[in-house]
């Protein structure tokens, strides 16, 4: 049975890198008694596939990992068990069955991600940024230095920015971004923010902001975005 687990990573857990998080999850799965499947072969490992590694320093409420289980367990029961074993800062929020095949490969599904970015003290959020964000979004091209495996290259990131705007809630104003994410095109939120600050000529940097991932999406054939979690169904066994 293929299962998609949704979780959040907040608080101190944002200092834990992806490889360490994987190790941490292996132990959580063992302790919670979820009958997770192992790969065949001489050194079997848990079948576990994360949708999109989150950078150190970022928090998220839209993380996904796909696993395979043997003995079925209800979504409610599984979430209860997983959360009883989770360290502070990790909260499991979804446990759904996904169809085998394309829908079960979380990593290859990801096309976009939503981010919120806030300054630590809301008062430092410049009033000019809302208008400038509009102008920034309208730019036909945004050339930046992008680090790749083979070195630094100039790239146009404008096509990878679906939304870049200033929103506001009870905690104050923040940047809202929907950016291309995944194997075909991937834009780190830090890069988008730094391009914006370069555009506005502010002496602010992305490292001054708290960046939070909200959700991961796949693009449906009709062009609309669907969250990875919406593709699965609740297990009631």
């Amino acid at each position: 049975m293929k299962i998609r687990i949704k979780f959040s990573k907040t608080g101190d857990m944002r200092f834990i890198g992806h490889l360490d998080l994987m190790r941490c999850f292996q132990k959580i799965f063992r302790r919670s008694g979820i009958d997770i499947r192992f790969s065949e072969g001489l050194s079997p490992h848990m079948i576990m596939s994360f949708a999109s590694p989150l950078g150190v320093g970022l928090t998220s409420e839209g993380e996904y990992v796909d696993i395979e289980i043997g003995v079925s367990v209800s979504s409610e029961e599984a979430l209860k068990r997983l959360n009883s074993q989770a360290p502070e800062g990790v909260c499991f929020t979804g446990f759904t069955e996904v169809e085998p095949g394309k829908a079960s490969k979380a990593m290859s599904l990801v096309d976009a991600a939503d981010y919120e970015a806030r300054v630590e003290e809301a008062a430092l959020f410049s009033g000019e940024w809302a208008g400038k964000a509009e102008a920034f979004s309208a730019l036909p091209s945004v050339m930046v230095d992008k680090e790749t495996k083979s070195g630094v290259t100039r790239a146009d990131i404008a096509p990878m920015i679906h939304t870049f705007e200033v929103r506001s809630d009870e905690r104050g104003p923040f940047f809202f971004m929907r950016l291309a994410s995944g194997s075909s095109a991937n834009l780190k939120p830090e890069l988008a923010l730094d391009a914006f600050f370069a555009f506005t000529q502010s002496d602010v940097s992305s490292s001054d902001l708290l960046i939070h991932r909200k959700e991961l999406y796949t693009r449906l054939p009709d062009g609309s975005f669907a969250s990875l979690g919406s593709l699965g169904k609740t297990v009631t066994v």
Binding site: D12, V56, P87
Partner: peptide
């Protein structure tokens, strides 16, 4: 909120911040 002797700015500057967090299972 859990106490932090170092604060997030320092924690993000140094190697392996998890060495200094405590709060493990």
């Amino acid at each position: 909120m859990k106490k932090s002797a170092l604060g997030s700015r320092i924690l993000l500057e140094i190697d392996k911040p998890a060495r200094y967090l405590g709060n493990e299972i």
